[in-house]
């Protein structure tokens, strides 16, 4: 029981990391980005590529992977989403699904469809005991990075000029524009931020488990589940949602592995019916 909780929370950190950007894009640009999982996977593979192919130290490869993914996100925004985000939401959904497919196929062309993993020699001890639970050191590092990056994102959104612009566009698109904010630029920056954090999640995850282009969709779905639980519109919600989802999915896979997906989706349905705003959401699940 205790170990399920601990391991679930540790996993939850990465889920939260992946979900921040998904939540941000849904809140600010108002689109469900089906390509989000592709960004997570891209970040992981780019990090692995930089580290293995060019011998870049992990920390630098991670940052490179994250920023590279952010850039990809911004390019996707400028070339595709910017032209369609005001259309029917369904059209944009289809479009981002198409983008996910294209990114995945291009990734497969470039990197192949094999699973890849980045093996790190951290010099850390393998782990330590927390009560009766063995906690692997690197899992804890990843968890800490999730929390710290959540705090960074919190500060960026709450305290900086850029953050104010993003929040303004989220709150009221027209008023934001009439306050002098360039909507297109702000959306590109939002997508950059979203991609950067997605890439960071991938960069951390690739050190724990193999990553391959075909895995993108489960990241998208997981991100969706996280913000359904945590609530849209707050980074704290995504963090809490990530941790709760981590424990939930770990518990389900531990106690009832064969029906684990049914359990996690069952919880999703319960949330949608009884608490559509999620645990910490600012408003209803879809604002616009």
């Amino acid at each position: 029981m205790e170990d399920v909780l601990v391991y679930g929370l540790l996993r939850g950190g990465i889920y939260a990391l992946a979900a921040f950007g998904f939540s941000l894009v849904l809140g600010v640009i108002g689109i469900v980005n089906f390509a989000h999982g592709a960004l997570v996977v891209f970040g992981g593979l780019l990090t692995q590529y930089l580290a293995v192919k060019f011998g870049v130290p992990y920390a630098a490869a991670m940052i490179g992977g994250a920023l590279g993914t952010g850039l990809l996100g911004a390019v996707i925004q400028r070339l595709f989403v910017a032209r369609t985000f005001t259309l029917e939401p369904l059209m944009v959904l289809v479009q981002t699904f198409g983008i996910a497919t294209v990114v995945t196929e291009l990734g497969t062309l470039g990197w192949g469809s094999e699973e890849r993993m980045l093996r790190l020699k951290t010099g850390l001890p393998p782990g330590f005991m927390l009560g009766d639970t063995f906690v692997p050191s690197f899992d804890l590092v990843v968890f800490a990075v999730s929390l710290v990056s959540a705090a960074v994102l919190f500060v960026v959104l709450g305290r900086t000029e850029f953050g104010r612009a993003i929040r303004a566009c989220r709150d009221n698109r027209e008023s934001a524009q009439l306050s002098g904010i360039n909507l297109g630029r702000t959306f590109e920056k939002t997508m950059f931020l979203s991609g950067t954090w997605a890439g960071l999640a991938g960069a951390m995850f690739v050190t724990l488990s193999p990553v391959a282009p075909y895995m993108h969709f489960s990241w998208t779905v997981d991100s969706f589940l996280v913000i359904t639980i945590g609530g849209l519109g707050s980074m704290l919600g995504a963090l809490v949602g990530g941790l709760v989802f981590g424990v939930l999915s770990f518990g389900a896979s531990f106690y009832a592995p064969t029906i684990a997906p049914a359990i996690t989706f069952g919880v999703l349905l319960v949330f949608l019916v009884f608490r559509p705003q999620g645990l910490l959401g600012a408003g209803p699940a879809i604002r616009k």
């Binding site: 399920v4 391991y7 996993r11 488990s209 895995m215 489960s218 999915s249 770990f250 896979s253 531990f254 592995p257 064969t258 029906i259 684990a260 997906p261």
Partner: peptide
Amino acid sequence: LPMNVQDLRP
């Protein structure tokens, strides 16, 4: 395990 299992930690 289900065929689409992701996490093998459990």
